[in-house]
Amino acid sequence: MKNVLIIGAHGQVGQLLTDKLNADAGYTPVALIRKEEQRALFEQKRVEARVASLEDGVDALAAQMNGIDAVVFSAGSGGSTGPDKTLTIDLDGAVKAMEAAEQAGIKRFVMLSALHTDDRNRWTDAEGMKPYYVAKYYADRILKGSKLEYTIVRPGALKNEDGTGKINTAEPDKQQDVPRADVAEVIREVLNQDRTIGQIIPFTRGETPIREAVG
């Protein structure tokens, strides 16, 4: 059984992933949350919660990774914050999480990124999104240059819909979005398959079963 630390567990994808791993006999999810008042949600699920801020130092984050086998970074500053928080959470927070994982001796690291992050020509400034793409681009780039056994998942626009269990990785531009539930399932399946180590997986909704699509 693998202990998986979900950074950003209180977020929408994070909660879905927590539930999926909690129902999977192969995993024990551990929620990393930034507010003590968020703990009750996970206690109800019988999931251990650890409190830390991504604006803390690397040593403080590494201390929360004791006994952890893999880290999933699904945190984000959110749409209601400014570019400053995007910089400190989505970029520097992600990098500190990588450094903390290395310090704690953890090898496996899964990054939740975004479709077209690696293509500057596709970055849109609609709704102030460009700083988010910039942050994700450099966080992904630093992860690729690290010693971690990484997988980067890059979904299209996230939707609050029931998951279909199917995605499109071959031609993700055929669709623009994907249910959050399917994103969580992609991450779970990535953790199941060591062949995804060192891979970047762009995807949107589609017709290929997730296990087959990421395999």
Rank of each mutant, 00 (worst) to 15 (best):
M1I: 12
K2W: 14
K2P: 08
H10K: 12
Q12W: 02
T18R: 00
K20N: 05
D24V: 11
A25Y: 04
A25Q: 11
Y27E: 00
T28G: 09
E36Q: 15
Q38P: 05
L41C: 09
E43D: 13
E48H: 01
E48S: 06
A49G: 12
R50E: 12
L54R: 08
G57I: 12
A60T: 10
A63N: 02
I68A: 06
I68G: 02
D69P: 03
V71T: 07
V72W: 01
S74Y: 02
G78Q: 08
G79T: 03
G79F: 05
S80I: 04
T88N: 12
I89G: 00
L91K: 09
L91D: 08
G93S: 09
A94I: 02
V95Q: 07
A97S: 15
A100E: 11
A101W: 10
E102H: 14
A104W: 09
I106C: 04
K107Y: 13
K107S: 14
R108I: 07
F109P: 00
V110L: 05
L112T: 06
S113L: 13
S113I: 12
L115V: 06
H116L: 14
N121Y: 06
R122W: 08
T124W: 11
K130G: 04
Y133M: 13
K136E: 15
Y137N: 03
Y138S: 01
R141P: 00
L143P: 08
S146C: 13
L148C: 04
L148Y: 01
E149R: 13
T151L: 02
I152R: 00
V153G: 03
G156C: 12
T164S: 14
G165F: 13
T169V: 15
T169D: 11
Q175G: 08
N192Q: 03
G198C: 13
I200Q: 13
I201Y: 04
I201C: 01
E207V: 07
T208L: 04
P209N: 07
I210S: 05
R211H: 09
A213F: 01
